[in-house]
Amino acid sequence: MNLFFREIKAARRSLILWSIGICFMVVSGMAKYEGLSGTGQSLQQMISEMPKSLQAIMGTGTLDLSTAVGFYAILFTYLQLMAAIHAMMLGANIIAKEERDQTAEFLMAKPISRSQIITAKLSAALANVVIFNLVTLILSITMVSKFSKDGESLTDIYLLMAGMFMLQLIFLAAGSSIAAAGNKPKRAASVGTGILLISYILSLAIDLNENIKLLQYITPFKYFEAKRVVAGGVLDPVFVGLSAIIIIILITLTYVSFRKRDLSV
């Protein structure tokens, strides 16, 4: 339990800074919504008839910019990216920092098993991710409801946040497994970010080209995409299942490889 609180305390400052970042994004983003809400209906219709690849370049997709939720969904794409980076770096650093800062020896000499160490560290990271998600949720709900017209439903936002939470868990697990299984702890965060960037760029490329749509199963950014969630009104069960499997595999990998890890002290 000590270790858990120690980790929470260590991540506190960065969590506060990230929260300020989200706050800035959501508040300043939604504040601009009013100026845009007058978009004509005919333009909206025209955009919806464009080929998918052109929509992707125009940056709107199939989202209806004239509603507050539709506008928020565009903002959500960037929030999702921020959340993924936060989770990935948190997961990688929380495991790798002991070796990086030469404190592994100190920690390992304590009378707790390696599995207990991982459990404490991962639960601390999980708590951070949950707080990150809740801060985003609360800010989003307050800002969107301030600008939405009567009768607009906000359930989409809860759904989007649930999707973002799954994405955060995937990247958290990915970060921790890279740090636990890789042989260079210093590189863990860089490798993780490299993978994250590749999957982000891949998700953009899939928007441009229908032929490589099959690749959407590889990149988590495609799993809970704003336009699909808003249009469907539900998280795709295939992707929820896929995410759960990925998370379980990566967490298991973290435990198994950290237990046998040759720590450099």
């Binding site: 770096m89 990086r100 965060a189 970010t193």
Partner: peptide
């Protein structure tokens, strides 16, 4: 301590 979080 570590460069990447800061630069990213």
């Amino acid at each position: 301590k570590s460069v990447l979080p800061l630069s990213l």
